[in-house]
């Protein structure tokens, strides 16, 4: 399984993603330049965290219009796997590849800390290695991560199993205190209806090695390898 990691001007987690996939997961990964309108031969495209185009205008808004996004849209339509982490999630939402919006945190401040996240749907290609209700420790680092969707859409997302991750406390309870940014329904990550595009605010690449305090994020990348085996 081959990974492509998109580099937008202002991406800050591109090298981190490349490192984790190559050195920790042991899979091949190539950088993908934002200006190219064609994707290289890859099975998964990752949109990494950072501040693409300085997050000017609105987080992810300018990157959503860059040439590579056209290619990613076609890739996704053909069933290719697309993973947006943090700023990558914001870009996917701005590009319309995922529903809803990501607003400023309720605190209006940037927040970097390790939080607990519950796996709500272990049946996506990104979550096969997890089990239902598993509580993960994953770091967040964002200023605009408050997921919002109007209630009819929320109901649809919930019934179709598109809510993949939810903020919770250590025991797996979704309490207001455990919601770091004020997201509706405590949503930390969602997928599209087809399940091949996932966006999440927490950083799985920052929790892929015990030296950094948690390996819970690595299972997300492992899931993709399992998916590849299953498809084969």
């Amino acid at each position: 399984m081959r990974f492509g990691v998109v580099i937008f001007p202002g991406s800050t987690c591109d090298q981190d993603c490349l490192y984790v996939i190559r050195k920790v997961l042991g899979a091949p990964a190539v950088p993908v330049w934002h200006a190219s309108s064609k994707l290289p031969e890859v099975d998964v495209v990752i949109l990494p965290g950072g501040f693409s185009y300085g997050d000017y205008l609105r987080a992810g808004a300018i990157a959503a219009t860059s040439p590579v996004m056209g290619a990613i849209r076609r890739f996704a339509q053909e069933g290719g796997l697309v993973l947006g982490i943090c700023n990558g999630f914001q870009i996917l939402v701005e590009a319309g590849l995922l529903p809803g919006a990501l607003l400023s945190n309720l605190s209006t401040r940037f927040l970097c800390r390790t939080v607990h996240v519950r796996v709500e749907n272990p049946h996506t290609p990104f979550t096969r290695a997890y089990h239902q209700g598993q509580v993960l420790r994953l770091p967040i680092a964002h200023a605009a991560g408050r997921y919002y969707a109007p209630s009819p859409l929320l109901t649809e997302l919930e019934t179709r199993g598109q809510v993949v991750f939810r903020y919770c406390d250590e025991a797996g309870q979704t309490t207001p205190e455990a919601n770091p940014n004020g997201s509706v329904h405590h949503i930390a990550g969602i997928c599209n209806e087809r399940g091949n595009v996932l966006g999440l605010m927490p950083h799985p690449e920052r929790s892929s090695e015990s030296a950094l305090g948690s390996e819970d994020g690595l299972l997300l990348f492992h899931s993709l390898l399992l998916q590849a085996e299953a498809v084969r």
Binding site: T12, D16, G49, F110, C112, R113, A141, R206
Partner: peptide, 14 residues
């Protein structure tokens, strides 16, 4: 203060 700083990017902070 420091929760407002990204202190984890670059995957080095042990």
């Amino acid at each position: 203060i420091y929760e407002q700083y990204d202190h984890m990017v670059q995957l080095r902070t042990v």
